[in-house]
Structure formats: structure tokens, C-alpha cells
């Protein structure tokens, strides 16, 4: 490939040069690669060690505990009992009630959050006045401590004390009103998070595309459903996935609002009661493992059914 045609005699010499230079390039490259690899592994090791030590090991330990009879009130009666704890849990109406309550709260609140979060996202994205003010105030519910917000709602609905409580009734003492208030508290707290994720998606929709759609005769409503929504579908799915998993773990709000009375316990709440209040580590651990498995199924379903890409699933691949 030189400018001057190569005489046949020189070709073997050329080949040798080619091999030599390739070897040099490869050697330098490998040395640099090895150094980079070493530095990379060194830099990630603390994070990896901590995450493994605090999650992986305890999870294995929890699985082990769940296969044992482990009741702190009867410490001398600990022994391996296979899946008895799971049988106990899965045949207990308390668990299934809690599971139903959790699923209900998760589905209803995720649906409302998506709708209201989208509205808030559009407001934050489109407002022509006071954009900073709107964005700042929308962050307040996100940033506020969940327990604090839960107390605010609890007091608001407490008989006599609260500004929202109807005269002469105590909504937090019966099932359906309690569930409603729990969902309200959950939605209030997490709309902003949802809205921010969706807003980031909205920002990626090219303005020209919407203009083109309106030139093509699409109304605002149609533009939203036929242009914006398909384009921000990845953002919607990621936001929904996060929120669903998060809602399924619901604990703080229920603990403060009802303490799980009137069957309003979530799965996290009943697990907590068995562990800390009941000191039955075997049963509690079995519940922990079941929650863990359910979370995995939800995540798997999202990724498989809807093709939600986990954030960072392609690190730097797109750049």
C-alpha cells in the first residue's frame, strides 16, 4: 500500500516490518491496558466490597435463617426445619392480607403518580412564568423526610385535631379511609420524583417535531399521545419501574399513619412486626425472602414485558 509500486523482492522485508511494528504496538497497548485494568479494579473495589458485605452476605444469611426455626423468645429451640416457615407464612391470612394491601397501594399509587406526575412534568416544562419557583417548590415533597410528611397527614386526619378530619369521625381507625390516606401520603411524596424523570424525557422531545406534527394537523391532545408519549416511553417505563419497586417496599407511611392497625399492614410492616416485635427471626426471614423474590419478579416483568431499559444498562454505549 505504498505510493510507489513495491518490487516483489522487497515484499518479504515489508512483511517483516509489518509484523515488528504490530508487535510493538501490541506490547505498548497491552501494558497500558493492564495498568488501566489494575487501576479500574482498585478504584471500584471499596464500593464492591461494601455493597457485597452489606447486602449479599446478609441475604444469604436471611435465606439460611428462613429455613430454621429461629425464635428469640425460645432460643434453645433453634433447628433446621426446611420450608416450614414458608408454609406457615404462605398459609397465613395475615400475610395474604398484607400482600393484597401492598399490591393495591402499589398499583393505585403508581397509576395516580404517573398521571399526576405527567401533569406536573408538563407544567414544569412548559410554564412561561416562574419556572424556577415551580421547580423549587415541586422539589419540597421529594426532599422532605417521609416520616415528617406522614405525621402531617396523620395529624390532618386526626379527629378534632386535624383540619381535614370531618367532624365526629376518625378516618384513620377504619380500613378503607386508612388505605386512602396512605395512598394520598404516598402519592404526595413521590409525584415530584416521577415528574422530574418524565420532565427529563420531555426535554429530549425535539420542539421541531411537535411543530411538524401541528403542521400536519395534530391537535395538542393528539400531539401528546402520538408524538410525545411514544418518544418518552423509555422515561415513563424507567420511572414506573422505580416507583413500583419503591411502593412495594412501603413502610414509613403506614408505620406512622396506622401502625398497621385495621389490617392496613404492608408486607414490610408484617415482616417488621414478626422480626422486631415478635422476635421470630425464622418467620420474618421467610417473609423477607418472599419480598425479595417478589421484587425480582416485578423488575423482571418490567424489563421483559415492556422492555424498560435499566438506567446505565449500556454504560457509555451510546456516546
Amino acid at each position: 500500500m505504498t505510493a510507489t509500486p513495491t518490487p516483489a523482492a522487497a515484499e518479504s522485508a515489508d512483511l517483516q516490518i509489518e509484523e515488528e511494528t504490530t508487535a510493538i504496538a501490541r506490547k505498548r497497548h497491552n501494558e497500558a491496558k493492564a495498568a488501566e485494568r489494575k487501576l479500574g479494579l482498585l478504584l471500584v473495589s471499596p464500593a464492591v466490597v461494601i455493597m457485597l458485605a452489606v447486602t449479599a452476605y446478609p441475604v444469604l444469611y436471611a435465606i439460611w435463617l428462613s429455613l430454621n426455626k429461629a425464635d428469640l423468645r425460645r432460643p434453645n429451640d433453634n433447628h433446621f426445619i426446611w420450608f416450614s416457615n414458608y408454609v406457615t407464612v404462605l398459609s397465613s391470612p395475615i400475610w395474604w392480607t398484607a400482600f393484597g394491601v401492598t399490591a393495591l397501594i402499589t398499583v393505585v399509587s403508581a397509576a395516580f403518580e404517573l398521571a399526576l406526575g405527567m401533569i406536573l412534568a408538563i407544567i414544569m416544562h412548559r410554564t412561561i412564568v416562574g419556572r424556577g419557583l415551580v421547580r423549587t417548590s415541586a422539589l419540597v415533597p421529594y426532599a422532605i423526610v417521609t416520616v415528617v410528611a406522614a405525621f402531617s397527614w396523620r395529624f390532618a386526619w386526626t379527629q378534632d385535631l386535624g383540619w381535614l378530619a370531618p367532624k365526629g369521625s376518625a378516618p384513620l381507625t377504619s380500613f378503607w379511609p386508612s388505605i386512602g390516606i396512605i395512598i394520598l401520603a404516598e402519592i404526595w411524596k413521590t409525584i415530584p420524583f416521577m415528574a422530574l424523570l418524565l420532565m427529563a424525557g420531555l426535554a429530549l422531545v425535539p420542539e421541531d417535531l411537535l411543530k411538524a406534527a401541528s403542521m400536519d394537523g395534530a391537535s395538542a391532545w393528539k400531539r401528546f399521545w402520538m408524538v410525545t408519549v411514544p418518544l418518552i416511553k423509555p422515561a415513563i417505563l424507567v420511572a414506573l419501574l422505580f416507583r413500583t419497586l419503591d411502593a412495594f417496599r412501603i413502610f414509613d407511611n403506614i408505620f406512622i399513619l396506622t401502625s398497621g392497625s385495621n389490617n392496613t399492614s404492608s408486607v414490610s410492616m408484617v415482616t417488621y412486626s414478626n422480626l422486631i416485635r415478635g422476635l421470630n427471626l425464622g418467620i420474618g426471614s421467610a417473609m423477607s425472602v418472599l419480598i425479595f423474590i417478589t421484587t425480582g419478579i416485578i423488575a423482571f416483568a418490567f424489563i421483559k414485558l415492556f422492555g424498560a431499559a435499566a438506567p446505565g444498562a449500556d454504560p457509555g454505549g451510546r456516546r
Binding site: 441475604v59 444469611y61 414490610s268 427471626l281 420474618g284
Partner: peptide, 13 residues
């Protein structure tokens, strides 16, 4: 995405 409650027992122990 981990359910923190699943860690409470083992961490407690």
C-alpha cells in the same frame, strides 16, 4: 431496588 426490610433481620443479628 433491594427491599431494605429483607436486610433488617440479618443486619440486626
Amino acid at each position: 431496588m433491594f427491599p431494605q426490610i429483607a436486610l433488617v433481620t440479618p443486619l440486626f443479628k
